[in-house]
Each structure stands twice: as structure tokens, then as C-alpha cells.
Amino acid sequence: MSTLEVKDLHVSVVDDENGKGQEILKGVNLTMSTGEIHAIMGPNGTGKSTLSQAIMGNSAYKVTQGDILFDGKSILEMPVDERARAGLFLAMQYPQEIAGVTNVEFMRAAINSRRADDDQIPIMEFMKKLDAKQEILDMTDEMSERYLNEGFSGGEKKRNEILQLLMIEPKFAILDEIDSGLDIDALKVVSRGVNSMRGDNFGSLIITHYQRLLNYIVPDQVHIMMDGRIVKSGGPDLAKKLEEEGYAGLRDDLNIDAKLTDEI
């Protein structure tokens, strides 16, 4: 079993305009183990993506206080590629497009980066695995032969993120708004992919704005984030309650002084 612990995490970003650091995360605590699925819900601009980027090691996000521990060891000093090879994965809200590099080539490079130089994945084994994973996601060879995310629709990009997840098989996957811009059929397909990973050796942190995704990927725990902190945790029912009351209702319930950007 592996664990991922976020302890009193404070994270700042540097404002492009005035060059000043702005604190986004103000003391986040979270403990996950493989075998568990956690969901983080929260209003827009509350710091959900910031948390995912800080865990993955994006250098634009500065940890000013607290720690992130993977199997008990701090990963703050590890560069992003090392964190990935250690077993972390982030399905990004906005995946990059890179022409000239095919999806297949990219995924092989990712898999091979975890293997010794004299033990690279044989092409047949890779293709067989790719076929199986594509099938789960209703994807075709044609998509994998295309250049990395280039010219992909929003939905295709999300599907491609999940394909990478299934190919790489990390210990922990953070899925940042993997449901945004998906219609119900695509949502089911993506959920099927994530659910196929479920098991004792896989843990996931699912970030979403809407409860809908959690009908398909049922979490073990739900955390509500507001204004850079986790303000409430509970079981799957918490998500349903939130759906009914809305973020404003929950905030007032909890007596929190947070401004919601999408409040009408």
C-alpha cells in the first residue's frame, strides 16, 4: 500500500502583472492511500487546480509552508519527472498540444522512462496493451497515430489523458476536471476507464465542480474546498447534499467567510 499525504500545505503563485506572490492554498490537509478514491469539490477559483499542480511539482506554484509526503517521504525537492516515475499522475485540465510527436511515440517514451535502457517495452507488447486500453475508451488506432493532442476536441483530449493513465498505470492519479466539456456518453466512457484502474494498488483524487461525475466514479471520501482550504469532508452523500444546497448554501451552513466567484 502507498500513501500520499498533504500537510498544512501553503502555496503561492506569482502574479504576472505585479510580480507579487499571492497565496492560493492556505493550509490544506489530506491523506490518501492506494485502494481509495477521493473527490475534491469546490467553487471556481478556490485552488483545486493549484493543489493538483503543487502535488505534481509545477514550478509555477511555490510551496511556502507545509509538506507533501509520498510513502512517508517528502517529495518537495523532487522534479516533476521524478515524481511521475515515483508513481504520481496528473490528468490536466488543459493538456498541451505538440505537433510532430505522435501519441503512440509519446506514450512509449513515458512507459520506457520507467524502465531500464536495456529493458524497453517491446513494440508488440506495447501495441497489445494499447489496443486493450483503447477498447475500454472506445478509441481508435487513428487517434493514437495522430500528433499529441493536436487538433483534438476538448472531449478527445480528456479521453487521451485517461488513455495515458491506463497505459502508464501510476499509483496515484489526480484527475483535474476530467468531466468538463464532456457529454453524458463521453462521461460514461471516461468513467469506465478510471473504474478499470480501481484496485488495491491504485488511488485517485478526482477534482470536479459537479456532482454528476461522482455518480459514475463513486468516491470513498468527498472533500469540499473553499478559499484555499478543505472545509468539510465526508462520504459520497456530501456530494449529493452539495448538489442540493449549492456552494453558497454550504458556505452559509458552515459559517465560512468565503467569496464565491461564480455566485450570482
Binding site: V80, F89, I98, F106, A109, S113, R114, Q164, I168
Partner: peptide, 16 residues
């Protein structure tokens, strides 16, 4: 960042 977040080392990522 995107490529390295998949485990690809810096030099390989740079080439891609």
C-alpha cells in the same frame, strides 16, 4: 512540464 509530468526526463522532453 506536460511531457515531464508523464515521467519523461528533461533532455528527452526537450527533444520532443
Amino acid at each position: 512540464y506536460y511531457l515531464m509530468s508523464r515521467g519523461i526526463d528533461e533532455k528527452t522532453a526537450q527533444r520532443l
